[in-house]
Amino acid sequence: MLGKLIKYDFKAMCRYLYPIYIALVVLTLVFSLMVKFNFDEGFLFSIFAFLFIAALNGSIIACVFFTVTRFSRGLLKNEGYLSFALPVSTATHILAKVINAIIWAFVEGLMLCLCLLIMGIVMGSIREVASFFKEVLQAFGMIEKDVLFGVLKVIVIVMLEMIASVCLIYAATAVGHLFGRNQKMIAVAFLIIVCIARSFLMMQIFKMTGHTAFAYLFVDDLILMALPVIFAILYSVLTWFILDRRLNLE
């Protein structure tokens, strides 16, 4: 059932995002071609440069926005009548939405990489791009194991932090659902309060362990890596409690 839920979420997200991604790729191509053929001055170029930057940022914003609305629309608006009539547990619903967010974060990342690749290929040459990647790989090969491990850890922590943020936004949406009016305002207020409370808590932890905030990412302390996981679970338990026990669809 989890797989099916993810499938339908993916379909629903595709509907909104594929035009944006097509536009992004097209604009990347146009922009790169303009640069390549020295068409890089004047009004027309400024417009395309602006559109390109807008598409780049817009795709990120749209990805986050539609991930969040997929949660609220799919579970807490009219479609919730269908979702909660399916023979699926509330926990499975929440898990499907978290996985949906992870999938689209990957898709967004891939799209941005694709844009870079297009720019590289168009502006330079395939050979240059290939040698660039070769160099990068070689560079990775030369890096010492410890540093590589550190980089990997950074990536993992960023991913975990991202998942925790998604879980927090879902929880905030669920908290908003408890209130008849001003749902959005309450959700945002909840989000801000939790963020403040969390950074305060982190500061206390840094103080206790004697690290500076900047060192956070490089501390090879597994407890710090586990923190986003713990937060994600806490937020999700709150989400689960509200959706399972306090659901009240309009």
Binding site: N78, E79, Y81, L82, A85, L86, P87, V88
Partner: peptide
Amino acid sequence: KAMVSYLPDRNYL
């Protein structure tokens, strides 16, 4: 839920 077929009083699809 697998045994209950529910028709809500609104457009739910």
